[in-house]
Design a protein around this nucleic acid. Structure first.
Lengths: 231, 231
DNA sequence: TTCTTCATGTAATTAGTTACATGATTGA
DNA sequence: TCAATCATGTAACTAATTACATGAAGAA
């Protein structure tokens, strides 16, 4: 009941993961809000997608908490704000990183439509799967560009290459997973009758999925499933 | 500017994908709100996660639009509501299924923390990866149970087995993807110095990811990337 | 008979998005 | 010099979550 806001005694709205996402960016360097918005699109949106306008709210919160400082420059007659992290901000970031976090969220209206495919026709489902692959392809093209930029050294933040390699691997694996599935699913759906509600069971696929899940469960239990060593 | 609400002339708040998610459930059978809530947890939450309370709002919208009917029973002195889809509702569902939808959303505070690992220590990152695997394992256990129930015929909605097999495959593949990645990433991070900001580049991994993305792009272009046949 | 869990909702709050507005810069 | 795009924000709205409240049923 008490002890909930030890480090933010009284002021300002509470800090959310979105706040820390911005704080994490500020930990790299000072940014203008516009630059922050670009980083949101290019990087954060892949693992923590939020609307651009957050870029104008969250840093204000950070300032109220003393985790960042805002300095105002001008471009012509317009003011522009540059944010930089404070030492207190770095400490808060470190504390956040030490806390545990919620599990991932996956949401997809397209997959939802496949799930309810029996309310429509077979072609609807095929088109939905096609759209999904097209979407994956768009993202893939970006990944290819970014990857090449890192390899030829033209990418910004060369010092973050190790981190980006690790996270980038996951993001591309997820795309690969979606693409492979959508391709496979299209093949399956093509064999279906026109009303997906009457599609025949595919016992073999079901068994294959179950085996995959069982094997994964064993891997985890077998590996001890113990947390990393405590100091 | 006009023609935006052809089929819902004037009343009631606009239908969102969440409304159609519920409508999709109603297309299977009539449900009480409590049963709908259970279905949300068990199935929808994997591809369209929403809070329980939506189950009490969205069906009301559907009724106002004439897509569902509510009948009131009583349990003791308490009223209970049962919702059923109407013919108009089925048509609306079919129309929704024929429309295109947004791409998937992936969001993960844990991955965000790995991305900003250089703000903390190596052990923080390892613990985060461990937590992710633990989360995956929980979900995996559910998948195993559900898969077994389908195979031994004890699962509800045996007629939906084909659909569930297809969608279930994706959901399990995503878990597999996360688990495999987190396991690999743990191995990588273990070789890092205590300050993840100074981790060395891993050129080989970067190249491998790039090759995967390039191969995927070619597969898509090579396969014609054409939409399914139009009537 | 009391405690716990199942069941059924409503209300308050908030996180997030969409829409709007407008100055600066660039290039045709 | 005009249009398009880059840049910088604010305000209104709403989808969604959290907290609350309480009756019914079953178990101890």
């Amino acid at each position: 009941m008490a002890g909930k806001d030890r480090d933010a005694p009284d002021p300002a709205p509470v800090l959310t993961p979105t706040s820390f996402a911005l704080l994490g960016l500020l930990n790299l360097q000072p940014w203008t809000t516009y630059e922050l918005a670009q980083q949101m699109d290019r990087t954060l949106s892949r693992m923590w997608p939020r609307a651009r306008s957050k870029v104008y709210e969250e840093p204000k919160k950070l300032v109220r908490h003393g985790l960042a400082r805002a300095t105002t420059e001008t471009v012509g007659r317009r003011p522009r704000t540059v944010y930089r992290i404070t030492p207190k901000g770095r400490r808060a970031l470190a504390r956040w990183l030490a806390q545990s976090a919620d599990g991932p969220v996956f949401e997809s209206e397209q997959v939802l439509k496949v799930f309810f495919a029996d309310g429509g026709g077979r072609l609807d489902t095929l088109r939905t799967l096609h759209d999904l692959r097209a979407w994956v392809h768009e993202r893939t093209m970006v990944n290819v560009e970014v990857g090449r930029a890192y390899l030829d050294g033209s990418a910004p933040f060369p010092s973050r290459i190790a981190l980006n390699t690790v996270v980038g691997r996951l993001l591309d694996d997820l795309l690969e997973c979606l693409d492979t599935w959508a391709d496979w699913a299209s093949g399956v759906v093509e064999t279906w009758p026109d009303a997906p509600g009457e599609a025949p069971a595919d016992q073999a696929s079901l068994e294959a999925t179950l085996r995959q899940a069982e094997a994964r469960a064993e891997r985890w239990l077998g590996s001890g499933s113990s947390p990393p060593a405590q100091p």
